[in-house]
Amino acid sequence: MSPDVQRYLQHPWEKAMRILAFLLVLVGLSASPAMAAPEFFGEFRDPLEGRFVDAQPRPMFKLAAQFRFVDPNGLLWIVPPGKEVDGASIPQAFWSFIGGPFEGAYIKASVIHDHYCNEKSRTEHDTHRNFYYGMRANGVEEWKAKFMYWAVATFGPKWKLDKRVAQNLKCNPMGDKIFCSGLPEVKLTISSLPTIDLNDPDTLALALSKASTVARSLKTSNGKVLDISASGQVGASLDDIAKNADQYRSVFSTKDYGKSAAKLGVLSQWNVSGLDQVKAWDNSEMPRYNAAVVLTPDTVKKVQSGKYFKLDANSGALLGDQLDLKSLEIKSGHSR
């Protein structure tokens, strides 16, 4: 018997361990992020064809041909030819963040989003979520797309769809009697709900201050952290964003910012004219609610210089004074 055979018979577990180690290496390679398939966000099926037409209060974009998008769930979103959209589904206060709704990589997603916000044939949740998918499918960075999704989910159009099943009766006379038959018919009722009043100076100032915190947190974390609340960091999954948006809708609707101070979390002065100019938090460290300065007459200069802040019961009166609308370059229409 050869020495190799004798050694194998004495230690058969050695070969088994070598095989196991080899299999573990294969499993590790298959799970490697470098080999993982890129996430699929959907695809646009058609080129976007159309032109801008004069209209009030802003120009409209009129589609010359059908425009389709298939989301990652396989749902088809269609804008028919001849439809006109104006970007109003994105709150105008946020237009300057992206240069306008019909600029660059945002235009395709904006057209789909605008149309379905007008038609309201699908739920508000699905329509706003699809806006995120459209941006990502067209190459918008994750943190920017999540910011814009948060903006429309918080401040954009809001509606409720109610489905009711009714009997659709058809009656026919037969002799001296009438016979009726019916089939169930689904009827859709659309209820438009109030949006946040961004014409109110205090609400606008607070909305943009909250938006600044969201944008800086998303950029610093590369899209992983959405916000800083009184209880800590808020995750940036799509479900987290939708939940956070619902919470802020409630706060902004009341306009009682003194009583809601803690619910607003960390705030930050918005002093840039677009998402490309947003700066990460200092030293790439997320702020802490307990370390935020309270907005008072004595801390105004710190806030204006970029120090993150929070409100107390007396801070509300100072909000509108801290916002320079001209610096935001808020646009009233599309620049052509």
Rank of each mutant, 00 (worst) to 15 (best):
M1Q: 13
V5E: 11
V5S: 07
Y8R: 12
L9A: 12
Q10L: 13
E14R: 15
I19M: 02
V27A: 12
L29W: 06
A31T: 08
P33C: 04
A34R: 12
A36N: 05
A36P: 01
P38G: 01
E39T: 13
F41R: 08
F44I: 00
E49W: 13
G50R: 01
V53Q: 04
V53N: 07
A55K: 03
P57K: 10
M60C: 11
F61L: 10
L63M: 03
A64N: 14
A65V: 04
Q66E: 11
N73W: 14
L75I: 15
W77C: 02
I78V: 15
G82H: 00
E84K: 13
V85W: 05
A88P: 04
A88R: 14
A88K: 15
S89F: 10
I90D: 03
P91G: 10
A93W: 09
A93D: 12
F94V: 07
W95V: 09
I98F: 00
I98S: 02
I98C: 00
G99C: 01
I107V: 14
K108G: 13
V111T: 07
H113G: 09
C117H: 09
C117F: 13
R122K: 11
T123D: 14
H125G: 12
T127S: 10
H128N: 10
Y132H: 11
G134C: 08
K144R: 11
A145N: 01
K146C: 09
F147E: 06
W150H: 00
W150D: 03
A151P: 12
A151H: 06
V152T: 10
F155S: 06
K163H: 12
R164G: 08
Q167F: 11
N168G: 10
N172K: 15
G175L: 11
K177G: 10
L183G: 13
L188I: 14
T189C: 11
I190D: 11
S191A: 10
D200R: 04
D200N: 11
D202F: 11
L208A: 07
K210I: 01
A211Q: 04
L218C: 06
T220G: 04
T220E: 06
S221L: 06
G223N: 02
G223K: 05
G235L: 06
A236V: 07
A236C: 01
S237N: 07
S237L: 04
D239H: 14
K243E: 14
A245N: 02
Y248W: 07
Y248C: 05
R249W: 00
R249H: 08
V251N: 10
F252W: 01
K255H: 00
Y257L: 06
K259R: 15
K259F: 15
S260W: 07
K263S: 13
K263L: 12
L264S: 01
G265S: 02
L267T: 00
W270G: 01
L275K: 03
D276F: 08
D276S: 14
W281K: 06
N283E: 11
N283G: 10
S284A: 13
A292R: 00
A292M: 00
T296K: 09
K302V: 04
K302R: 13
V303I: 02
V303M: 05
G306I: 02
G306L: 08
G306R: 03
K307M: 07
K310G: 09
S315M: 02
L325I: 15
K326N: 12
L328N: 05
I330T: 10
S332N: 11
S335Y: 04
S335P: 07
R336W: 13
